[in-house]
């Protein structure tokens, strides 16, 4: 609710945009080198911008989000208790659902802004080159969904502790857990594989939008918000 009046939002935006820009140009440079490598040309392979720049770029952004989002969400609810503003929120004529959604949407707004900033490079690429527009759209859709899921986990984590750092550690731990469970050997087919938050992003990056992936992210967000609601509601009884 108070993101845009605090300097944190702007610092996060700046760091995120600079980092994603640096990665983008590293991939672009790599692409350019391969393009003019004579040995590679001997194999007469075609090198597409989509494969060499866009897809690794999207993958990198998802890692950046894993690192940045816990810092974004850590103070969402932890600070409320510390600054005694939870007393203001819970005695105002609004429901707990309003509070959870208000917090979530504020974080989501900032995150959308982050994605818009990081899309600048891709738009430039699209204007100057020939990447696949379908992959761009599905890639950003996937990033949006995975980021929105991260935010839901972060919000839940920040409802658990009054200490920002503890909240950040909890959300980072949870996210990493959901990230690496996909690394098991039979990830493609098993239930554990379906639970993995990153496996579902792969399809989006490849340009494939599937219902099962959409359902996964949407239910992930819903469960995160629902758990936050339960925690906030039960805290009043203590």
């Amino acid at each position: 609710m108070s993101y845009f009046v605090s300097p944190i939002a702007y610092i996060v935006l700046l760091v995120f945009t600079v980092l994603s820009g640096v990665f983008f140009f590293i991939y672009l440079e790599g692409f350019a080198q391969v393009q003019f490598d004579t040995r590679a040309q001997l194999f007469q392979q075609s090198f597409s911008l989509t494969e060499f720049v866009l897809q690794p770029y999207f993958g990198t952004i998802s890692v950046l989000l894993l690192l940045i989002i816990p810092m974004l969400t850590m103070r969402l609810l932890s600070e409320e208790k510390k600054q005694h503003t939870s007393e203001l929120l819970f005695t105002s004529p609004i429901t707990v659902i309003n509070i959870v959604l208000g917090k979530y949407l504020a974080a989501l707004a900032l995150f959308i802004l982050m994605l818009l900033f990081s899309s600048i490079f891709v738009i430039v690429l699209y204007l100057k080159g020939n990447p696949d527009p379908g992959v761009i759209l599905s890639g950003f859709m996937g990033l949006f969904l995975i980021g929105a899921s991260f935010l839901a986990v972060g919000l839940f984590a920040s409802s658990l502790s009054q200490n920002q750092i503890v909240s950040a550690v909890i959300s980072f731990g949870l996210l990493l857990l959901f990230w690496i469970i996909g690394a098991s050997s039979d990830a493609e087919t098993s239930v554990v594989g379906y639970l993995s938050i990153i496996n579902h992003l792969d399809n989006f990056i490849k340009g494939v939008v599937e219902v099962k992936d959409l359902v996964y992210y949407i239910s992930f967000i819903f469960i995160g918000l629902f758990l936050t609601h339960i925690v906030l509601d039960s805290q009043r009884w203590r």
Partner: peptide, 22 residues
């Protein structure tokens, strides 16, 4: 609760303020 809270103005023991707002 919503109707009742609408009628109440509450100053808690520690004033509930967001330090980074004007």
């Amino acid at each position: 609760p919503i109707a009742a809270k609408n009628e109440i103005g509450y100053l808690p023991e520690n004033p509930p303020l967001y330090d980074d707002m004007k």
